[in-house]
Design a binder for these strands. Structure first.
Lengths: 344, 344
DNA sequence: TTGAAAGCGATACCAA
DNA sequence: TTGGTATCGCTTTCAA
């Protein structure tokens, strides 16, 4: 803070300010251009070995670290792939997916950055993302509208990919339609002869983007069959589960789709504690195929969700970045397969 | 749409390039300075209302979005708080903690960015983070050494905070010593009269940073008591759990600390399937106080982990940023409290 | 009230 | 093989 760069050295102590390539150049006795050549291994230019050494030593001595903002400003582009991070943690499946994706994009030399969601919502948020001038943006959920997409594209994003239930104009889409999960669950229960089917809908508003389509998918599967769907709001507490279980007999349901395996465990416990037999009285099916389902007794039937591999999505992103003019691709990527165990 | 900024009009078609403040200025018929004044509501300068309007209209019409890199390059600093994202998802507790933290820092007008960890490890990674010139860096785990800290500080980070088991020279530390968890668990089992205590250690290498200290803490709690600890490696599969359960009687253990509640569930199921009675033959205690523990039968005793609130950490970061010269603070923040239920 | 211009740090062209 | 220099987009003095 005391010593100003680009001025002759002074003996003043205190925290030195951040070294720049000019400082390296000065210490090595060469020009900034040469420093740049050496540190970037520029192939169009050959630097003599002694000079190389002097530059590298100087850089090391100063602890020089290039300034990413300056570099990408000059370059006019970066390799940053931006993903807004979800407002609430979305479970192990999503976490694993993101990890895998990060790794795969890293292999392709992109830098993945999860942007901490601020209060901004929708196109407001898109503006904040656009300020970072990412080369690609991956947006889970339905926050992003067509104007958001066009804003991002106008700001230089060469690929905008939505991961969610619906396409958005101008963006690539990985269609992950949670309705397929509900559909599979309900169809399975129907095939097992069940006709009065409950569907658990978590009260947690953060889960609504998942729970609503899962419910709708279940409805859809049974349309016109004469089977009936009953919506069952359920908070993530033992008390609420006990309340629901207490009025279970009155509901007259012979099956229930519990949104996911964790809610299945919550409800199953409450039902078993009140003497409901599974699957005799009521069949139960969860979703996500978590380990815990296999550990329940009876073993939990579930809907296994198949997400695309991180490598696949990384490849899509890379393709889009290389060829930004191409028409947006739309892929249906959410597979839903029933895994029948003992609870249905 | 066809015209390229900063060059004489040409008829060449193709994707328009990103509008800059110069474009806004030109369209509004004012200078770039004026644009900057208007868009930043600069208070030291008064701009006439008509001019203001013209600038705002022009910006809207062009879909102008400021360039964060250029801005922070000029300003010499940013408000980015960088957190490396863990290589593997770390469970619901950590996820909730990060969410909360993001929100709290957002309230203080920081931008939280989770940096996708590439192959780089340790001080190599610190370099990559330093390139972004974040105002603060929050590093979970033990990846960061003293040299990494000093590199980051030299690169302008005004606060470096480690979240992990140990202090690092020069950095603020939120000491989250997982050993306390193991310690609490073992002490509890001992107090309940158990003397031959198994400790499950997940084989998953990603969990080692947690599992090792939890084991060590348990060892520590029993040192000199005559009670014995047996390390039990366990993979996250039913098969491995069954294998372990099969040789259970031979092990002669009267209690087990299972690393966390999920491993507790896995092992409990395998033990119950082979006829081991819980807690009569073997007491079981998990950790993290997940919902699933309450749903098991017998209800699972557990060690509840108390993390600092996101707001507290955000306040620490803000304090450190405002006063970067201050001595690093070290806080012991991981509380471990046994919640006894029915399995011990 | 507005504009001209100097940089922030890094890179790549053109000369030497 | 190396150096000078214009440039990326933005902010902020200083002058007008």
């Amino acid at each position: 803070m005391v010593q100003i760069p680009n001025t002759p050295p002074s003996a003043s102590p205190g925290p030195r300010s951040v070294p720049t390539s000019a400082d390296v150049a000065r210490l090595a006795g060469v020009s900034r251009a040469t420093v740049s050549y050496v540190l970037n291994n520029t192939s169009t230019v050959r630097i003599s070995e002694p000079t190389r050494r002097r530059v590298l030593d100087a850089a090391r001595e100063l602890g020089y670290v290039p300034h990413a903002a300056a570099r990408s400003l000059r370059a006019g582009h970066s390799r940053m792939v931006l993903m807004p991070s979800p407002a609430a943690p979305l479970g192990p499946l999503y976490g694993r997916f993101v990890s895998e994706l990060q790794w795969a994009l890293g292999r392709l030399d992109y830098t993945v950055v999860q942007y901490g969601t601020t209060a901004a919502r929708g196109d407001e948020a898109a503006r904040a993302w656009a300020e970072l001038r990412p080369v690609a943006v991956l947006v889970p959920g339905t926050e992003l509208g067509p104007q958001g997409v066009s804003l991002l594209r106008r700001s230089g994003a060469r690929a905008v990919v939505t991961l969610g239930p619906a396409c958005v104009d101008g963006a690539h889409a990985l269609l992950m339609d949670q309705a397929a999960v509900g559909h599979a669950a309900a169809a399975h229960l129907y095939a097992r002869g069940r006709r009065r089917i409950g569907v658990v809908v978590p009260r947690d508003p953060a889960l609504e983007t998942f729970s609503r389509p899962r419910l709708d998918g279940a409805r859809d599967a049974l349309r016109g069959t004469g089977a009936e769907i009953t919506e069952l709001p359920l908070a993530w507490t033992e008390e609420d589960a006990a309340r629901l279980a207490a009025r279970w007999t009155g509901l007259g349901l012979d099956a229930v789709f519990t949104y996911d395996d964790e809610y299945a465990m919550l409800l199953m416990r409450a039902l078993q504690d009140t003497g409901v037999r599974i699957p005799e009285d009521t069949a139960v099916i969860g979703a996500d195929d978590l380990m815990l389902g296999r550990l329940l007794r009876p073993r939990l039937s579930t809907v296994r969700v198949e997400l695309p591999s991180g490598a696949d999505l990384a490849a899509l992103v890379d393709r889009a970045v290389r060829n930004p003019g191409a028409a947006p691709e739309t892929h249906r990527v959410l597979g839903a397969r029933v895994v029948r165990r003992e609870s249905t």
